[in-house]
Design a protein around this nucleic acid. Structure first.
Lengths: 171, 171
DNA sequence: TATTGTTATACTCTATAACTATA
DNA sequence: TATAGTTATAGAGTATAACAATA
């Protein structure tokens, strides 16, 4: 590819894909948020944190790992983890290798909560998304979005201020 | 309603698609939010409102229409429209046919702001999403998401139709 | 009586910056 | 000095409910 001029237009199919992505994201998030609140008194972020832990070996993860996965700031994570800890859904402990580190672990109650909420969550997703499309479409969707996700993970934030992971030593 | 067994599991490809959708949504939203704030001092919701108006005939829409499109409550919309009106980006007026109605219209400044922000917005999207996948994938993505969106539009409650489906839980 | 939009209010969430402690 | 995490704070955003005016 040679013409690397930053195109500032999107063609019809790109626009369609973008608008659909935004709207689907909005609607799904909205519905999911409501369901999670209803079924388990959890926000989506909180659910993501629990689910991420549930998916981790031993149900444990480092704080920074969690912040990265859920895409929130560290202080935001501290806040959420604090809430979840107060609710008894997870526990904080020392990281074995790093004295500074904090290991967050799903408690039994947390796992139980996850088990209580997940079926309804999944049912809603099926109803909202997967029932509407065929199995082949599901694979297309997953494949394309997977590529995008991998790309996003590798692309550094374009503006100088990177506030995701590295704390910017920029003054 | 539910003709079949309420499946509470997702198969591998469904899970993959879902997680990818969530993560891509998070990352794109995050990046977009930052760019919009940077380039035009707009939140994503505000941008969506302006863009929705910019897309409407005459640059005008009814309040409830806007709330539906952007998926926020009417009070939330009043708040956002208030902000944008104070910034001079849009104006409120009487609806012609309905004495109760409020017509929201994009001002010249609003259109100008949209023009100022859009190119960077599009460039970011291209960088984050479309550069990572081929044209064929773009069409796949748009097609599948379009189906999902149409499905979602027909399912969820409208903002003004009822106060909210509070007791719609399955049990 | 239902609907449109606003207001008052309360609450959740998030990020920035300063701070502690370990590497 | 850099990194991990916390705290203090401040601001943005959202929803709920009550309300006014019109249909």
């Amino acid at each position: 590819m040679s013409g690397s001029e930053p195109s500032t237009t999107l063609d019809a199919s790109e626009l369609a894909a973008y608008f659909a992505l935004i709207e689907v994201g909005n609607l799904v998030r909205h519905a999911v948020e409501q369901q999670l609140r209803d079924a388990g008194d959890l926000s989506h972020v909180q659910f993501q944190l629990l689910a991420t832990l549930g998916d981790a070996p031993g149900g444990s993860r480092r704080m920074t790992e969690l912040a990265d996965g859920v895409v929130i700031s560290r202080s935001g994570l501290t806040y959420q983890v604090g809430l979840l800890e107060r609710s008894g859904l997870l526990a904080r402990g020392q990281a074995a290798d790093d004295e500074r580190g904090v290991m967050v672990t799903l408690t039994d109650a947390g796992r139980s909560k996850l088990g209580a909420v997940f079926p309804g969550h999944v049912a809603l997703l099926r109803e909202l998304v997967f029932d509407a499309i065929g199995p082949h479409d599901v694979e297309d969707l997953g494949r394309v979005l997977g590529v995008v996700r991998d790309h996003l993970r590798s692309v550094p934030p374009r503006s100088a201020t990177s506030r995701r992971r590295r704390s910017a030593s920029v003054d």
